[in-house]
């Protein structure tokens, strides 16, 4: 990859990579060539060399292309402009289209998952205006002017969000399908706790919010809207505990000998 404005023809595999990880820049790259900032962003988005290796090398398997379905002929089209992970998005959607399907099918942001499509699993959890919500029960049309953060927007450049790093360390997932929702939920949970918001298991609801202590049961209850069928809950809770307390939470298993 070269710097400057020199036109550089991307291979199909490279195009696919950009398609997948930074679709918003694809057109620019294809027409204007790749620039240093694109590469830096690629590293940022993908989290570094290991990933770039995985993606580049694995050609078709990772070749996920972005489809922006034509909106021609869509009944009840709604134009909506909103921010996703700090970037402005302007699209026209079918009024029936959920935020989840918009992210996954139109914006190439497939990190948010569809588990049940009816608010019963939490896999689609994203953060809208600072709060965790279910993108499967949010119409894209209602997002006008709003700010949406998805799993793809949590890391700060090469640096993973503390919750993402803790999830890796504590093996807080197996198949990884509920993980985006779990992490978005856990990140928002930190804010809720800071704000002193109560839960059903809060011992004394009448006490002011600042007295809140995030006990194990508080974590469990507050994370109960995110189902994990592989059964990573204890590991998820340890990751949350570690991020909340700022202290190492030991990982334990033992051998007989």
């Amino acid at each position: 990859m070269k710097e400057g404005n020199e036109n550089l023809r991307l291979t199909e595999a490279e195009k696919d990579l950009f398609n997948q990880v930074m679709p918003e820049d694809l057109a620019e790259i294809v027409t204007g060539g790749i620039q240093r900032r694109h590469f830096l962003k690629l590293l940022t988005v993908t989290g570094g060399a290991l990933l770039a290796f995985q993606l580049f090398d694995n050609h078709e398997v990772f070749a996920q292309s972005l489809i922006t379905n034509s909106t021609v002929g869509i009944e009840n089209g709604v134009k909506v402009a909103f921010m996703v992970n700090g970037q402005k998005k302007q699209i026209e959607v079918d009024s029936r289209m959920t935020l989840l399907d918009t992210l996954r099918e139109r914006l190439g942001l497939t990190g948010s998952k569809k588990g049940c499509d009816q608010g019963q699993c939490g896999a689609c959890t994203v953060i809208v205006e600072g709060r965790r919500v279910l993108s499967c029960l949010t119409l894209a049309a209602t997002c006008e002017g709003k700010s949406v953060t998805t799993i793809e927007g949590l890391a700060n450049g090469l640096e993973l969000h503390a919750m993402q790093a803790a999830f890796i360390k504590h093996d807080s997932f197996q198949c990884g399908y509920c993980t985006s929702g779990q992490i978005c939920s856990a990140v928002a949970l930190m804010t809720e706790v800071k704000n002193g918001e109560a839960s059903y298991v809060t011992p004394d609801i009448r006490l002011p919010g600042h007295s809140l202590r995030l006990s194990d049961d508080e974590i469990r209850e507050r994370m109960s809207g995110n189902i994990c069928r592989c059964g990573a809950y204890p590991n998820i809770n340890n990751a949350i505990k570690e991020v909340y307390s700022g202290k190492d939470v030991p990982q334990t298993w033992q051998f007989s000998s």
Partner: peptide, 15 residues
């Protein structure tokens, strides 16, 4: 890393 960043690509995502 791919799973906590949402980049691991599942079947329905290969549009």
């Amino acid at each position: 890393h791919l799973k906590v960043t949402g980049i691991a690509t599942f079947v329905a995502e290969f549009n």
